[in-house]
Every structure is written in C-alpha cells, then in structure tokens.
Design a protein around this nucleic acid. Sequence first.
DNA 1: GTCAAGAAGATTGTTGACAATCCTACAAAA
DNA 2: TTTTGTAGGATTGTCAACAATCTTCTTGAC
Lengths: 253, 253
Amino acid sequence: MPPATLNAAVAPFSAAAASRRADTTPLTLSLVEQIAARLSERIVGGDYAPAQRIMEQAVADEFQVSRGPVREALRLLEKDGLVTILARRGALVTQLSIDEVREIFDIRAMLNGLRDRAIAEDTERTRHLPLLEKEVATLTRLARDAEQGDAYVEAVARLNRTLGQMLRNRRLKAILDSLALQTLRYSQLGLSTPQRRKQSVQHWQKLLKAIREGNGVEAERIARQRVNDSRDAAIARLQEAKNKRNQGGKKAA
Amino acid sequence: MPPATLNAAVAPFSAAAASRRADTTPLTLSLVEQIAARLSERIVGGDYAPAQRIMEQAVADEFQVSRGPVREALRLLEKDGLVTILARRGALVTQLSIDEVREIFDIRAMLNGLRDRAIAEDTERTRHLPLLEKEVATLTRLARDAEQGDAYVEAVARLNRTLGQMLRNRRLKAILDSLALQTLRYSQLGLSTPQRRKQSVQHWQKLLKAIREGNGVEAERIARQRVNDSRDAAIARLQEAKNKRNQGGKKAA
DNA sequence: GTCAAGAAGATTGTTGACAATCCTACAAAA
DNA sequence: TTTTGTAGGATTGTCAACAATCTTCTTGAC
C-alpha cells in the first residue's frame, strides 16, 4: 500500500527534524508527523481537554490508519510535553500545574534572551530589519486600539515567528517552538488588558532599537524582562482562576 | 506474551517521562524506554560511529524483540537529537558540525545559568550544601594532581548530577540532560590540560560560594562563564582536529 | 576507464492479529 | 453503607507479514 496521506494540509510538526533534513527535501511529511501535527493542533487548540485520554484506536479509525503510526505520533507528542504516556494506560493530554507553567516560562525567558541577543549580534540581521520595523509599527498601531486585543496577540505571534526565522541556531528555535506550544494556552493571558499591551509594545520597541544598534546584552535583558512579565501576568490569571474554582467547589459542597 | 525484558540493567532513559509519572510508580521501564536507553548508551559511548546507519531489524534481532518497539525507541532518540531519521532511509547516528556543537553549548550556558541561579535562590538549598561542599573539595584535590584527569572529569559529572538533583524545575533538568547527552563526546575536551582544570575548579569554588550566600545573580554569571569556557575549549579542539584531518586528507590525496 | 540504466536484494512504512493488562460494573460479605 | 472480590469488556503492548521504496550490484554503452 502506498503511504497513506491525510486529507487536510498540515503544518510542519517537528522543526528540529525538518531543519535537520533540509538537505534531502522533505516536502511531504511522513504519516507519523502528519498525525502528530493534527493531534498537536487539537491539543493546543483545546479540542482535547487537559487530562483527557487519547485512545489509539479512536485516532486510528478517524484518520483511517492503523495504530502503529498513531503510537509513534503519541510518543513524539510526549517528548514535546503535550501528552503524558502512562504504561499500559495510554496517552493523556498533559495538564500543567501552575508551578509547571512558571517553570516553562522561566526557561523561555532565558532562551528568548539568547535568541534576541544572537539576533542583535548577527551581522546579517540588517537583511530582516525592514520587516521587523514594519511589524513593530503594526504592533504599536494595534496597541492604541483597546478593541484590537486578538489582533494584537496575533501580531505578536507573527513577530515571534519572524524573529525565529532570523535565528541561526536551529536547535534553539526547535526548543523554543516546543516550549511555546506547551504554554500557548497561557501566553495570551498576559496581554488581556490594554494596559498590559501598552507595556508590551514598549518592550518590543526597545528590543527593536537594541537589535538595530547591535546591542546584544541589552536585547537579552529586554527579552528576559518581557517573558518574565508575561509569566507573572499569566500566573496571576491562573491563580485567580484557581481560587475562583476552589471557592465555587466549596460553595457547591 | 509477557512484555519482554531486556537482560541488562539500564539507566532511566527519559528524565522528563520518569518524573512526570513519579506518582504512578515507574519502577519498571517500558520496553521502548529500555531499548532507547541501551541505544543511547551506545551512541554516547561511541559504539556507533557518527553518521552510521542503525538498522531496525538488526537492533530487533539483537534484543530479541520485533521492529515495532525499536522504531518507537528510535523516534525518541531523534527527539533527543542522538539520531537523525530520514524518510524511507532510516536512522543515522547524528553527526554534529562544529557550529552545531557551539549552538548546543550556547543553549547550555543559558540554562545552566538558570539552574544555578535557581539553586542559589532556593531557600531549601542548605539541605544539600554539605554534599556540595564535599564534592567541590574533592574537585579541588583532584585538580592539584595532573595525573587525575579522568577522575576529575568524573567528579565534575557527579557534581553536575548533584546540582541536577537540587533543581526543582524538572523540565529544565530534562532539557539539560538531553543537551548534555548530545555533547558528552565533546564536553571533556575542555578539561584536557591541568591548566584548564585549575581554572575549572576556581569556577566551581566561586559557584559554591555564590550558592552558599544565596547570590543567584552571581551564580548565574559564573555558570554562564564556565560553560562558555568549556565551549571555547571544546571548539578549539574540534577545529584543531578538523584542520589535521583536512591536511592529512590532502597529503593522502 | 567512466558513466548511465536496470534488476535484484535489502530496508523501511504500514497493517492486522494476538496476548497481557487495566478498567468497570456488579455482586457478595463485613 | 462501605468494602472486597470477581467476571467481562476495553485498551495497550508486541509481533509477524506484506507493500513501497531505496541501495547496490551488474551490465552495457560511450
């Protein structure tokens, strides 16, 4: 049988794997990677709830493949922290505790610092600078309008993608992508108010300036500050939600 | 058939997976994890040469299992960067370019900085301090003796394991373990001369002091410096070896 | 002697089936 | 009422076999 192909188009799953094979032209994702990408979308998108069990046969039936590739895809997702595999009990959608979210943000702060410093110190950065300028300008415009919350979040994501493309260190990019995926559900919590967006856009403007001037140390400092701010805002929101849940639970009981 | 068990005892493979199941009794590694651990040992230990092809059936025959678990194990190793899987061509032992080694060391510098800062700022660090003091003392003693090169390298590895155990951030530990595994072959290059060991032991002494005093910023600074020094020494050695190879190649041709 | 084309073998990608284990529901005893 | 024990079904873990692709070797032409 020819290697089955899933109907829908899917985004590349493993940036690390994709970049490492850049020389041998992937073009078509392997079945395992396609399944992993689809499941990944669902988990990040919230179609599967945290702690929900993902059963191999169900996924296999739905995608019309056998359980083998599904098992391998789930193993990939486990390495990315999106599911947790328990022996003889299968895969569960990973549920992060508040502490774990904080831990991931701490790692991201360091590695975003490395990323932005590397970009600022890259002598070829000028090639991408115009695009960067334009995206920060868009950000600035969107931040002024209190109604443009979702658009702002999307613009920040696009800016981060651009920075990822400017980054030479492929392995760093892969790790950052993986960590970003794990906390996607929580990252946006930090940009929920116009006030926070104001502060956010200032960070980006300062980062752009540091990159423009080739000031790596400053770029790193700003990046760390920015991610730490996101972390604190996200944690505060999560803590709020948790307290509310607990109170509600007590009232019900 | 009962789940086959590989004869030899193996070290835990995936720190992330192991720690995430801490509540559900790991105790026995799954077959896939055992295979991954065995193959990992071989790759890191140099039993498989870089760029060497690892064939599924051969591994399956040797461990007396079928190809299914072997395939899953290879996928895990790919996520850890130890092998590179090419579509329809199987798994190759990853061969790192000098640039890639540098990239990994850059990431390790940042994350070791985070690790040591977190340890220094952990209020419960005093619980482990005596052991840390003892290990740095051992290091100091070994560094005096020019003959104790291997013992010194081993002692540094043990010290790093201890620091890993002091670390609360499990995900950071998992990433660090994975990166360390990938560069194990190169890390020791930095400690090859008594002079470098002298410098190394000074770093560790200063780190210990910073941890003792709870000075997280200083601990981070030292850690980054230390890894960057290792990086530069390792890169220099690799560059040397590469030049020699090229010259030898030219002479032969 | 070098290079291209084709056939044979080897290897991966995928599948369906079976065995071992786990979960659930229900019944029996304390 | 709560706990314990026990079937039955459901799910994972593993395997062996087949199809598609890749690699290598041979053959032939220039």
